[in-house]
Nucleic acid binder design. Structure first.
Lengths: 347, 347
DNA sequence: TTTAGCACTCGCAATTAAAGAGTGCTAACA
DNA sequence: TGTTAGCACTCTTTAATTGCGAGTGCTAAA
């Protein structure tokens, strides 16, 4: 429905605005190499594009600025694929070069790369533990009254919780119980753990003395509370360099949201393996109305582990960010895969 | 060397400025209840106090503002002890009321309380693991080529590291080794671990096959790298409400420093059990030149675990912060003590 | 259909003016 | 001799005024 020329002009305007952060005027566009129309012609087209809702004016005689609809159209149809520079590619390569053995290490490194290469804020959502399987349960007594319970998943995640032990329970009993649990629960997806405990295992434990019952209460409380997925944030200060964040109040609302974690975690989590772009109010959170989020994901094999995202102003280098996100998402998945390909289920 | 009257006036000026954040003039002071001199008299005294370096002017005909020296004098000699309101006390009490069993929980809760009650940014430095003793070492194989090593200290801290296992090492061998290590290392302060490993244990292991030697290499690398103490920060956005942080650049340098962690950790760590106040340039870090840090500590028994601090503008409510820091420091120490008083060394 | 030209709009930066807060100094007072 | 009233002066802050320039919309000519 848009003419060839309108498409071109819209694209050039948005490209320019993404670079300059300044409202762009008709003359600026007419001077571009790939545009061969006079400023007056451009002006007419701009007026049309504004009427169609792709552009906006900041005031009656200013240049044009892309509207949210404009960005959406740009992302869906207009933007040209971004070729990462050799420099950028080697930067990523180097980051993944030195042998990494820790999940956190990989995630933190990725967050750093993303934020340094884009000057936006990167957010990586750690895996929901519940999607992985129990590998081993350990209880280590610290004193007569306290112990720490450690839960290891097949992906190498370690969760731990301290808890107090009622005095009437002997260490030996506790140990026995842990043995039973380990025997029965190895390989069980964390998400079913609670259920399985309450049914089969509870029965089994009841056959022993009442002390088991009590110890079990404590243990369950310690281990199976909801543990929210962890949030890794990189380049929090990058966003302060964007001209749209001259205003302290905006900074505060955004940072409060990041600090609060739950809302942003909810915003990020998504299931598709594709890259998803959410522009401004599409995020349905007031604090995000001038910001865009681009999310991707990383996995081990078939199971998607977590989300990897970049947060920036709506005036974002969408094309570059998407390329980069794809690259990092692949690299992360690759890395994790290389760890567990050989006999993840074997003992 | 200062007259009684000068002391009073200096105190009132600083008190007022801490509240108002505005340069304070002679008339403002003369109207205070506890001051019975005319503005002209105050002016003369102010001129003297300025000459002595306790006060400054922002421009030739403005009111006075405390200098760094002024704050220092205020903190050392002038400020009156702060009585926490009933509300504040119950707020703290409530935070510590519900049964807490996790170290992190206590620390995070404390950080939250501190920042909410002061509107400054709270920073708590976690313990150096090295000051505690090894309780148990666990190695849990995840696949043929990877395993996670878990290290539990007597204070209930859990450190874990994933690492790859060279193929030639059999799980049984690994287990054997862990058993030996546990036997020998239980109760050894983490700080001596490395040394002890390199001398006694290495000997012991060498008596077995060369595979032990190799496995040991891997294990050592995985476990005994420097792990910096963790930083818990609360109320990061509070500082944005202080009028001295209208300037984005200041915000950026400060946040960069907090994000970077090492410098601020170095700034905070201190050994005395007293509260310490560092005002502006006393911190010897350029980014801190308009900020003050007040630090205290928390312990278990005799061993000091970590540092608890508040970060705010030099125009800080020193008195209140000090009271609060004392309170929280006590509460934390109390809580930890209650966990481990009974038989921390017992099995 | 495109473009040149022109009147018009608006924001921005610089300039000026007025108001207000506060000082330093002087001289009078207790 | 210490204290205070009074006053001229300084400097900031705010608002109002102005001119400039970037950019538009519209008209008429190519």
């Amino acid at each position: 429905m848009l003419t060839e020329r309108q498409l071109l002009i819209l694209q050039v305007i948005i490209d320019d605005f993404i670079q300059s952060a300044q409202p762009v005027g008709s003359r600026t566009i007419s001077k571009k190499d790939n545009v061969s129309y006079s400023s007056a012609t451009i002006r007419n087209e701009m007026a049309d594009l504004e009427e169609l809702g792709f552009l906006e004016k900041t005031h009656s005689s200013s240049g044009r600025v892309p509207s949210e609809k404009g960005y959406r159209f740009y992302v869906d149809h207009l933007m040209s694929p971004f070729n990462l520079s050799g420099q950028e590619k080697t930067f990523v390569k180097q980051a993944f070069n030195h042998q990494m053995v820790e999940f956190e290490q990989v995630v933190q490194q990725s967050a750093r790369v993303l934020s340094e290469l884009t000057n936006y804020t990167s957010i990586i959502l750690g895996p929901e533990v519940y999607e992985t399987k129990l590998k081993q349960l350990q209880i280590i007594p610290l004193s007569q009254i306290s112990a720490v319970a450690i839960l290891v998943t097949d992906t190498g995640h370690v969760e731990h919780r301290s808890f107090t032990i009622p005095v009437e329970i002997k260490p030996a009993d506790l140990e026995k119980m842990v043995n039973i649990l380990n025997e029965r629960l190895n390989g069980v997806p964390i998400i079913y753990l609670h259920h399985k405990l309450n049914t089969e295992i509870a029965e089994l434990l009841k056959k022993h003395t009442s002390e088991f019952e009590k110890a079990y209460q404590y243990l369950r409380a310690a281990l199976f509370d909801e543990q929210p997925a962890k949030l890794y944030v990189g380049g929090k200060t990058n966003i302060l360099m964007q001209p749209e964040f001259r205003d302290i109040d905006k900074v505060r609302t955004l940072y409060s949201m990041i600090e609060e974690e739950t809302e942003i975690a909810h915003l990020l989590r998504h299931n598709s393996s594709d890259i998803k772009v959410s522009i401004g109010t599409e995020n349905e959170v007031n604090a995000m109305k001038d910001l865009s989020i681009i999310t991707g994901s990383y996995s081990i094999g078939d199971t998607q582990l977590g989300t990897i995202a970049l947060l920036g102003p709506t005036r974002m280098e969408y094309s570059k960010v998407i390329s980069l996100l794809n690259l990092l998402s692949d690299r992360m998945t690759e890395t994790f895969h290389s760890w567990y390909q050989k006999g993840s289920t074997g003992e």
